[in-house]
Nucleic acid binder design. Structure first.
Lengths: 345, 345
DNA sequence: GCCGGTTGCGTCAACGTTGACGTAGGAGGA
DNA sequence: TCCTCCTACGTCAACGTTGACGCAACCGGC
């Protein structure tokens, strides 16, 4: 009765039709709730489908149907195990499910080659549209895909090419706000620690940092700027070198969550975590649990995901209005580390 | 030239064939690297495919092919935004990609109804197999799917039905080890704080707790046991009530990561975080950054994911050997919170 | 010069489903 | 009574691809 191993083939409409003594077309009508079937025949079809355990084959159906929809979206992120990425995936998944749409997800490791491969894989499965976190550097593969007419929404980073929607956050404005807050406390030596420069977010946050300094009338000290910090370890080394300066910074603006973690690690190991102020971009789990709790700029990830999904689903439905670039506001969450004043001399 | 909005239809084999002046079958042979095509014709086909931007339609191909593979696996977890789940997803995705297989992922919120719906959605897309984190309570939907012959591997929790592979960790043994470690430091009042009892993992960890007490010759104090703690807030309240006891515990074994966070939050707010020992089950980001750093039982998530993916891919390839239940060892990671001795009276 | 085998294609039908269209039978109106 | 319209089906072909099979041209061997 329960032969788990033999992969028996799924029943088809033909088998249901035979059992119900109708044509496959009639079965199709019943399954899709289309009119033109008498109650008697419809009931026979339902009974037959139930007894055979029939389940429609969406791939065959989408092959034949005129709209050609697969009811599947592609999601291409840098790393699905990163908390930011996975929260975003979850938000997109939830919104898509409301429309009966599922999500094919992949991690491209910010590698153009891998991104191109995954893009091809998604295209081979004829997904209806794609939500992408563009890799740093050139976006040729994305642009090509887009030019073929594949609906696409970029998240976290805007497109370098035209006619494509994006959903990002207030990278620049919130960074400026963070720096101004530090300056307001009296900090004059505020360091910048940033992720890879090829990333648009990283550039924007740096620009926000510069704007913040300028608005506060502070001078930019090049020796307080560290960029291209990829991963916790690299960030840690950079933070250490900053603290080793003759005239070290009294506050740090860490422009990405792994960078924040690296910086905190160094401050803690040197016992400076209550002396040097830190504001990080991007919230992360337990940022409120460390000592001191970390002041961060928090993106509204669920809203970013929902917005991206809604945009994409609308495009799939044929919305061809001009491309929009939605900006979802981030908020500064004061928790302690960003409220540390400079040492009184 | 780059008309992004009009979704022009993808070129087909027929168009490539016409341009290359061969039959579609010959195009098929070239695309699939099958023999029986001269170099001259093959080159014409490749040129035509390139100039038209042809990309094979995997859904049409899998419909027609005898093996009927979609090169897609389903993944059904409780919550893709949970760090444990997303790390697992990432590990599965990586292993699957090595075989050219992509992953359709969904969150079932531990809700049987939602799980059944998602299962139907995956089945409609004819995924080759499914990796599932079973919901607590009955697994009827899973069992039915399995009995239809769908290859399936359960992760984190074993099946309640037969003939189905699973990959879990050493829940019981590692929990016992954790409790024994606390007992070895001299703790006699060790509390248990656990997740929903319907979850198999939760039960196992509780059993391990009991075994630990027994091995150490400690008496079970029912008032030190708190179960069914779902979410950080509930865990927080439970931990608070434990500390309010006349004779409060000197050590906590928190059997799930959100529970650990809740407990830490209470200890910290009461200034007891250096007085009461804590060992948590499941590692989480920044567990090493809080004060004190948290001693945890760490599962080997990448290995769990890789193992599950390999098992499933083998089943999809026709491996019909008896079901196996792989157990991936977890390790105790001492960081500080689990090394706090009981107060000397 | 004929035979058997190989190489390089082509033809046809089918995978499971649905769009376009056909049609038998009954209802309703003139 | 006849014509029209509607209802409830059915038939057929096609979506993009590939398995099964067919066949002409060429090769080497005797």
């Amino acid at each position: 009765m329960n032969d788990h191993s033999a992969r028996r083939s799924e029943p088809t409409m033909r088998e249901v039709a035979a059992l119900a003594r109708v044509s496959t077309k009639t079965v199709s009508r019943v399954i899709n709730d289309l009119p033109g079937v008498g109650e008697e025949a419809a009931e026979r079809v339902r009974a037959a489908a139930r007894s055979l355990g029939y389940r429609p084959n969406l791939t065959a159906s989408s092959l034949r149907r005129s709209d050609r929809r697969s009811a599947t979206l592609g999601v291409l992120f840098e790393d699905l195990s990163n908390p930011f990425d996975s929260a975003l995936l979850r938000a997109i998944e939830d919104r898509a499910r409301q429309n009966g749409v599922l999500v094919l997800a992949g991690s491209d490791e910010d590698d153009p080659t891998l991104q191109r491969e995954l893009l091809t894989s998604l295209a081979a499965r004829r997904v209806d549209g794609i939500v992408v976190m563009a890799v740093g550097g050139h976006q040729d593969a994305l642009q090509q895909e887009r030019e073929r007419g594949t609906p696409m929404v970029l998240v976290d980073r805007p497109p370098t090419f035209g006619h494509t929607d994006s959903v990002t956050t207030t990278n620049r404005d919130s960074s400026r706000e963070a720096v101004l807050k530090l300056a307001g406390l009296g900090h004059e030596r505020i360091a910048f620690l940033g992720d890879r420069q090829t990333l648009w977010t990283s550039q924007e946050r740096y620009t926000g940092y510069l704007e913040g300094l300028a608005h506060a009338g502070l001078k930019l000290h090049q020796e307080l700027v560290r960029k291209d910090l990829q991963g916790v370890d690299v960030a840690e080394a950079a933070a250490a070198s900053l603290l080793d300066l003759d005239n070290p910074p009294t506050a740090l603006f860490t422009a990405q969550n792994l960078v924040t973690v690296g910086a905190m690690r160094v401050l803690r190991s040197r016992g400076l975590h209550h002396r040097v102020a830190v504001i990080g971009f991007d919230d992360f789990p337990l940022a409120d649990m460390v000592d001191p709790a970390i002041t961060v700029v928090r993106q509204d990830v669920p809203k970013i995901g929902r917005t991206a999904a809604e945009l994409l689903l609308a495009r799939v439905d044929g919305d061809d209005s001009p491309a929009v670039h939605k900006v979802i506001p981030a908020v500064l969450v004061p928790r302690g580390s960003g409220e540390i004043p400079p040492p009184t001399p």
